[in-house]
Each structure stands twice: as C-alpha cells, then as structure tokens.
Amino acid sequence: MGLSIISLIGLSCRSLLGNPVRSFLSGIGVFMGVAAVNATLQVGNISHAVIEKQLAEKEAPQVSISSKWNPITKNYARLGLEDVTILRKQLKGLQSISGMNYRYSVEVFFQNEQANPIAIATTIDFLNTLGRRLVAGRSFTPRDFNNYQPVVIIDQFLADTLFNKSNPLEQTIYINFRPYVVVGVTVNKPFWEQEPRGIVYIPMAIYSAITGQQEIDSLQLRPHKIENLESLGKQAQKILEQRFHGNEFWVWNTVEEILEQQKTLDSVSKALLVVGAIALIVGGVGIANITIASVIERTPEIGLRRAVGATQLDILLQFILEAAILSLIGGTIAIITVHGATVVVAEQFKLPYQFDR
C-alpha cells in the first residue's frame, strides 16, 4: 500500500532539510533561471509602458502629407477637399482624415487680453484625427460648415491666457479683428515640439470664405492601428502622385522616432528573452544533474525503503515532490527579488511600472 500524499510531502521536506547543501545548490539553479527570465519580462514591460507614455503625451499616431515644390511648374500641387473625399474612400486601414491650413501667428483679443496663438483651419473630423479630447463645449458640426458659422475651438492654454479662470464657452473673441464665438476647449498638446503658445481651430469653410483660399496645406491621416502608419502613408502618396502627375509629396508621421525606439526595444527584449531562456535551461540541467547525483548517492536508502515495502511510485513521487518544492521556493524568491529590484529602479529613474499578476 502506497504512502498518502501528506506523508510523501513530509518525507520530501525532511529529506531536503537533511541535505541542506544539495538543496541549496538546486534552489540556486532555479533562482538564477527564473530571475533571468522574470527580469527580461520586466524590462519588456517597462519598455512598453515608456512607449505608451510617450505616445499619450504626443498627438495621436498619424501620417502627414503635403506637396513638394515642383521646379517645372514652379508651384505646389493644389490639394483640396475632393482629395480628402477620395482618400477617405480608397485608403485601407484609415480611421479618419482631415485637411488643414496653418497660420503660425495670429492676433487674438478678448476684452483687455491679447495672445498670438497658432491658427489652424481644419475640416470637420479633426479632433478624431489629431486625437484631441474636448474638456468643455462641443466639436464642429456640419451646420457650422454649411452655414459658414464664425465659431472656433481653442486649447486650454489659450483659454487660460485669455479668460483666466472664467468660462470661455459662447464668448466672442477677435482673430485679426474678426469676431468668432468659442464653442469648445481641447486639452493641451505639444505642436511639433514647440513651446506652448495656444492653438485656435477654425472651420475650413469660414476660413476659405474670408481668405478666398480653397487649397489645403496638408492632409492628416490617422490609421486604425499604429503598425499601419507606414503602409497608409505609402498608399496615400501613390494615390496623390497619380492624381497630380509630375508632383511629389512629403510623407512623414508624428511618432516615427518612438516607433524606431519600439523596434529597438523589441529586438533587445527578444535577445534578453533568449538569454533568460538559456539561463533557465542551464538551471534546469543543474537541477537534473544534482537530482541524478542524489539518486545515485541515495541508492542504499532507496533499497532500504523498497525492502520495508515502499513502492516504485512512492519513491518516484518523493523525488518529483522534492524537485517541485525546490522549484516553488526558488522561483518564488526569484520573482519577489526581481519585483523588489524593479520597483526600486523604477522609482529611482521615474519609470512607469506595474506588477503583472
């Protein structure tokens, strides 16, 4: 009759305690292997968290397209609203698209306050394209465009500059001495890494009516998935170069540097994972060698136990339980140690870190 599981566990523990050097060496092998793999995973987790934090601080991942100077025609390609419509229909993986015109310094007045923000004339879906969130008010509506309503959306920086802490919604501001009504306020986001100076968004319809300019300076395209940025830009460039034969277009994205960092970190994480796996295998081989050696060393003990009635299954289970107990203890200590070290490093260097359960 075989031993009960409780008896086997007790026997395994007594055996491990009776051979502390052997148990310690086996535990060290498990500790090193698990620690190497776990440290590799934590490096990957922190790296991805850093990338996500950088992406959150920037504009939404998007492709920007504008025309290059054509030395033959001595002009730029005249992008227009019809190009927005064509690209929206033909591009695969496109979430939203917006046309934009930039004026890098305008005079804005509200009562006795004055500012010189960047003015951006844009199409209706710009908030989604740029990934801007409204903190107050509303976005532009089709009615604003169809009726040429003189309305604007400003960012929080400009709202604080002009209105201090009062409510800017439905207030009339003057942009280059023309009245506009504030209907929305967006969060602050860096504009091409410049120091904040405020941004005011104007519907493209009223901008074109005032200035007579029907062309669009650039197109902003936001994909459904960040990994589609490059392919989306190439698709759009090919379509536009077919439409404007003989013209070339600049194509770049807002997170190119971050994507390069992500590729590098992914490569490093894979290399570290291989190193960690090798360390784990080496640790496992070490445990196997020590276990084999202990079996050979304990041959008289095994013979005695067989003589007093222990079955082959009892003896096999005892050795398996000893290995499992050592692996559990060594692995747990390794995870706790790596987690503690990661928390200290993350706090020291102000890195985002959250323990994965």
Rank of each mutant, 00 (worst) to 15 (best):
120 I>M: 11
219 L>C: 09
206 I>S: 13
122 T>Q: 08
72 I>H: 02
233 G>K: 02
18 G>M: 05
96 S>N: 11
317 L>V: 01
208 S>Q: 15
32 M>F: 12
55 L>F: 03
158 L>W: 07
4 S>D: 07
126 F>P: 03
233 G>E: 09
50 V>Y: 01
330 G>C: 03
142 P>Y: 06
253 N>L: 07
34 V>P: 03
342 T>Q: 02
224 H>G: 12
259 L>N: 09
176 N>Y: 02
237 Q>Y: 01
182 V>M: 06
183 V>F: 03
116 N>W: 13
151 V>E: 10
67 S>P: 03
16 L>N: 04
153 I>H: 10
357 R>S: 10
116 N>A: 13
240 L>H: 05
116 N>F: 15
237 Q>H: 06
85 T>I: 11
56 A>D: 13
76 Y>H: 08
64 S>K: 03
226 I>H: 05
285 V>R: 02
224 H>W: 15
244 F>S: 05
141 T>C: 00
7 S>N: 14
103 R>Q: 13
264 T>D: 10
210 I>V: 15
99 G>R: 06
184 G>L: 06
315 I>A: 02
336 I>Q: 03
213 Q>V: 15
23 S>T: 15
108 V>S: 06
156 Q>G: 02
251 V>Y: 08
28 I>F: 06
152 V>E: 01
11 L>A: 08
31 F>I: 02
96 S>C: 02
